[in-house]
Simulated assay, not measured.
Amino acid sequence: MSIKRSLARLAQTTPRQLDIASVRGALPGQVRETEHGKLHLIDEYLEPHHHHGRAPIAEALHVSTERLAQLALDPSLAGIDLLCEVFAATETTGLAGGTGTVPFLIGIGWFEDQSMRIQQLFLPELGREAPMLHWLRERVQQSSCVVSFNGKAFDWPLLRSRFVLNRVPAPVLPPHLDLLHCARRVLRSRLKSVRLVELERQVLEMYREDDVSGALIPQIYFDYLDGGDVSPLAKVIEHNANDLIALAALVAELVNHFDEVHRGDDPRDHLSYAKVAERTGDRVRARSFADAAVEGGGESACIVEACMINARMARRVGDVDDEERALLGALRAADEALRAGVQVALTQHYEHRRKDLARALEHAGGTCLAEGEDAAERRVARLERRLAQQT
């Protein structure tokens, strides 16, 4: 369900709600007098059961923060208060960043009980950023973490420069969850693009209706400043609100699929989750997802890599039998291009862990493509010498 339809329905039941997409000829929202000047604010609520595509966004309140911290590779996220997380997205006058780029629309969202509240701070004219920056600062100071998409590289450095240029004290940023990094970590292996709108389609099954292209947004704002029709800004505001909602939905979707194995997931996703678990030292989870990748019927490379993860996990706890089973599984699944690399691992396993030089020599003959002819010949010669010494 699109935000356009949700907000239209909310407008019928809640007097203070505003259907932003129906506004023509006037800016949506209202002007508030603050101690720092006038602030143009759009303030909306979503229904508790709102879905973004197939994902119920309120599930973001119930995810495991331990899994969230692992997925983000950021231990500081463990134990955060999910009711105090703030989702943030900006629309700017350019995509290059730098001091000449101005965020003219700052979207922030958080949950109040089970409903997501969305506030969008709009800049009606250049040079009046202070009120919106003070408003943002207060919200960030109250948050347990900030959730963004490419916010570490773009949004927050830009906002920090605007705080400095407008002489507004910047808030101390709490833990920052950048979902772009998580999406790359988990989904890059099967998706050609991890742009937010692409993740909505492929992961959330959400297709935006009549969405405005991000590349057009700066010019829409400049046209407004030049006295043009304000109605195109309604689409920009809707676009920004959908970005915020997508962040909540993605938190729920990515973390829940890391919390437990979903057998229907793509084996490449299982493998990616296994890699994350391995990096964070979660052996049990790494094994579970690697097993799912092996059993998922994926391509040779996926199965081989999953088996190699299982082998490493077994080796770390000294389980020689389990390591051998995993390596032999990798060998059975390997195509010609991957077989030599697996045989290197098997050669090392039999030489150093099994102390079975004969078996090591059997596999050493097939390592040439992985380590080069000279290295393979030296390995074979060394094993032959050691075998001769034994006899």
Rank of each mutant, 00 (worst) to 15 (best):
R117P: 01
I118D: 07
I118P: 08
I118C: 09
I118Y: 03
Q119P: 07
Q120S: 09
Q120N: 11
L121I: 12
L121R: 10
L121H: 11
P124D: 13
P124N: 07
P124W: 09
L126M: 10
L126K: 03
L126P: 02
R128D: 02
A130E: 12
P131M: 12
M132L: 10
M132T: 05
L133M: 14
H134I: 03
H134C: 12
W135R: 11
W135N: 06
W135Q: 09
W135H: 14
W135P: 00
R137T: 08
E138V: 01
E138L: 01
E138H: 05
R139M: 07
R139S: 07
R139N: 04
R139E: 10
Q142S: 15
Q142T: 15
Q142R: 15
S143I: 03
S143G: 05
S143L: 01
S144D: 13
C145L: 06
C145S: 15
S148Q: 01
F149N: 11
F149S: 07
N150R: 05
G151H: 08
G151Y: 07
G151S: 07
G151E: 06
K152P: 00
F154A: 14
D155Y: 02
W156K: 09
L158N: 15
L158D: 14
L158H: 15
L159Q: 06
L159P: 03
R160P: 00
